[in-house]
Amino acid sequence: MHLAGDFAGGLAVGVEYRPFDSELAPWIELIRKPAGGFCDRCRIIRQLVADAGIDAPDATILSAYRAAEVRTLEILRRNDVRAAIRAVAAALMQTGRLHGEEAAAIAGAHIAPGELSKPEI
């Protein structure tokens, strides 16, 4: 989910931004420090570091990031997912704020609950 946030910004202009390893390295270092950030990318890297271990080599963390990146982009390329994103964005433009259950209901008109967690996607 956090990774989708990092990538979804380019959807409107048809760009799939995939950062280079050298761009991700400072984020890994930031998370290894006790004062690491709480942005979407920080949360992604924090979870990957937690999964791999604080002393895991950067290559291990980057490999896990790339696997998540591929899965995320596969999901974001789906027409139903794009329609759900557009619908939630339109509702946000109208109301200025949505609660999670409201956003889920709007997205649910396009994507069945649990559908994106299926392994064949």
Results as ranks from 00 to 15, higher is better:
Ile44Gln: 07
Ile45Ala: 08
Ile45Asp: 07
Ile45Asn: 10
Arg46Lys: 05
Arg46Gly: 06
Arg46Phe: 04
Gln47Cys: 05
Gln47Pro: 00
Gln47Leu: 06
Gln47Trp: 03
Gln47Val: 02
Leu48Ser: 02
Leu48Asn: 02
Leu48Trp: 01
Val49Lys: 08
Val49Ala: 13
Val49Thr: 14
Ala50Gly: 09
Ala50Asp: 11
Asp51Tyr: 01
Asp51Trp: 02
Asp51Glu: 12
Asp51His: 06
Asp51Asn: 06
Asp51Gly: 03
Ala52Asn: 10
Ala52Glu: 10
Ala52Cys: 12
Ile54Phe: 11
Asp55Arg: 09
Ala56Glu: 02
Ala56Tyr: 02
Ala56Leu: 04
Asp58Trp: 01
Ala59Gln: 03
Thr60Ile: 04
Thr60Gln: 05
Thr60Ala: 05
Thr60Trp: 00
Thr60Phe: 00
Ile61Val: 15
Ser63Met: 10
Ser63Ala: 14
Ala64His: 09
Ala64Ser: 11
Ala64Gly: 06
Tyr65Pro: 02
Arg66Ile: 00
Ala67Ile: 09
Ala68Met: 15
Ala68Ser: 15
Glu69Phe: 00
Val70Ser: 08
Val70Phe: 06
Val70Glu: 11
Arg71Tyr: 00
Arg71Lys: 09
Thr72Tyr: 03
Thr72Cys: 10
Thr72Gly: 03
Thr72His: 01
Thr72Lys: 01
Leu73Asp: 09
Leu73Arg: 09
Leu73Gly: 08
Leu73Gln: 10
Ile75Trp: 00
Leu76Trp: 08
Leu76Phe: 10
Arg78Asp: 09
Asn79Gly: 05
Asn79Leu: 07
Asp80Tyr: 04
Asp80Pro: 07
Asp80Asn: 14
Val81Gly: 14
Val81Phe: 11
Arg82Glu: 07
Arg82Ala: 08
Ala83Gln: 13
Ala83Asn: 12
Ala83Phe: 04
Ala84Pro: 11
Ala84His: 06
Ile85Glu: 09
Ile85His: 12
Ile85Thr: 11
Arg86Leu: 15
Ala87His: 02
Ala87Tyr: 01
Ala89Trp: 05
Ala90Asn: 12
Ala91Glu: 14
Ala91Phe: 08
Ala91Leu: 10
Leu92Glu: 12
Leu92Ile: 07
Met93Val: 01
Met93Gln: 05
Gln94Asp: 15
Gln94Ser: 15
Thr95Gln: 15
Thr95Val: 12
Arg97Thr: 13
Leu98Cys: 12
Leu98Ser: 11
Leu98Arg: 11
Leu98Asp: 13
Leu98His: 09
His99Val: 12
Gly100Asp: 09
Gly100Tyr: 05
Glu101Cys: 12
Glu101Pro: 06
Glu101His: 14
Glu102Met: 13
Glu102Leu: 13
Glu102Asp: 13
Ala103Tyr: 05
Ala104Asp: 14
Ile106Ala: 11
Ala107His: 06
Ala107Leu: 08
Gly108His: 14
Gly108Ile: 15
Gly108Pro: 15
Gly108Glu: 15
Gly108Thr: 15
Gly108Met: 15
Ala109Thr: 11
Ala109His: 09
Ala109Phe: 05
His110Gln: 08
Ile111Thr: 03
Ile111Asn: 03
Ala112Lys: 07
Ala112Gly: 02
Pro113Ala: 04
Pro113Lys: 03
Gly114Leu: 04
Glu115Val: 08
Leu116Arg: 10
Leu116Ser: 06
